[in-house]
């Protein structure tokens, strides 16, 4: 592709990429807007009304602060536990094959059980409050990152292990500068799946738990026949997910900058 600047930023390419990204949502939104214009249906209100209500409820009415922010906090707290636990146990299991083998039936089974099936059990132990919500988010979203970390650590090159042994690299440095960066591309792939899982679990536990959060808002609106507010909850969830995904990608680009640069470099060298 042409137009590549000296600093490697491909400006026309970026604009083109953005347009390519945006065309489908824009087309769909326009289609829905005109198709639903003047809708008299109770279940499918016009997009115009939904957009106006979204502004009213979430932005002007402060719904972001009262319902979205608590959800976000919950999500981040549960997800943080999942990431830390996944990387910690994943590294241990990746380094000590015996432990991985011993734990495999459990990890395989736990991964195979649909997260939502754990909801009644979790409610039995933790009730319907924060403890249940956080433990569900953390527990269910741990598995993808755990399994990917195991794989990533296990596939660290034997030469690199020998280097760290012969140069007497300290255990913490081996983890921080050896195994963790080596496994990072795979850890991130797992973290991205874990994140999607965490968002889904968050919505579900909020629908079934004590009042509060966007999940509860959507369910409550539905049960009280407030169909337009219900739709606004879904719109916000869409924005919310998209924004978090963007944030995630920025973070990944920063932490794995060496990886992307290396890949770009090797591809550039082959032409």
């Amino acid at each position: 592709m042409s137009g590549k600047g000296r600093n490697g930023v491909d400006v026309p390419g970026r604009i083109l990429g953005f347009l390519w990204n945006a065309w489908l949502p824009v087309v769909l939104l326009c289609a829905i807007w005109f198709a639903s214009a003047g809708s008299q249906s109770f279940f499918f209100p016009s997009l115009e009304r939904v957009v106006a209500a979204t502004w009213q409820i979430w932005f002007a009415g402060g719904g972001i602060v009262t319902d979205l922010v608590p959800s976000l906090m919950r999500l981040l707290a549960g997800y943080a536990v999942a990431v830390l636990a996944g990387i910690l146990f994943g590294t241990i299991m990746g380094l000590v094959p015996v432990m991985e083998v011993a734990a495999r039936p459990v990890t395989e089974a736990a991964r195979a059980v649909p997260g939502a099936a754990l909801l009644p059990i979790s409610m039995m132990f933790f009730g319907t409050g924060e403890a249940m919500k956080l433990s569900m988010i953390a527990f269910i979203s741990t598995w993808p990152i755990l399994l990917n970390t195991i794989e990533g650590v296990r596939s660290v090159d034997p030469t690199l292990r020998s280097v760290m042994e012969t140069y007497h690299i300290r255990p913490w440095h081996r983890f921080r500068y050896g195994f963790l960066p080596a496994a990072a591309p795979q850890v991130f792939a797992g973290a991205r799946i874990s994140f999607a899982v965490a968002v889904a679990v968050m919505v579900i536990v909020e629908m079934f738990g004590t009042p509060g959060g966007i999940g509860f808002f959507i369910r409550h609106a539905q049960q009280t026949f407030q169909v337009v507010p219900m739709w606004t909850g879904l719109v916000m969830l869409g924005f919310f997910g998209y924004a978090l995904n963007l944030l995630f990608r920025v973070l990944e680009k920063r932490i794995l900058h060496w990886h992307y640069a290396m890949v770009a470099h090797s591809q550039g060298g082959q032409q």
């Binding site: 090159d157 020998s162 140069y167 007497h168 690299i169 500068y177 960066p181 060496w258």
Partner: peptide, 29 residues
């Protein structure tokens, strides 16, 4: 004792600069 391995592409850490690759053992010491 220091060891130089055959496969440099696998014995150096691609996520560290040349300097950081060289100083990591010293840092650990």
């Amino acid at each position: 004792l220091a060891v130089v391995f055959q496969d440099y592409s696998r014995s150096l850490m691609p996520w560290l600069t040349a300097e950081d690759n060289i100083t990591l053992p010293l840092r650990s010491a």
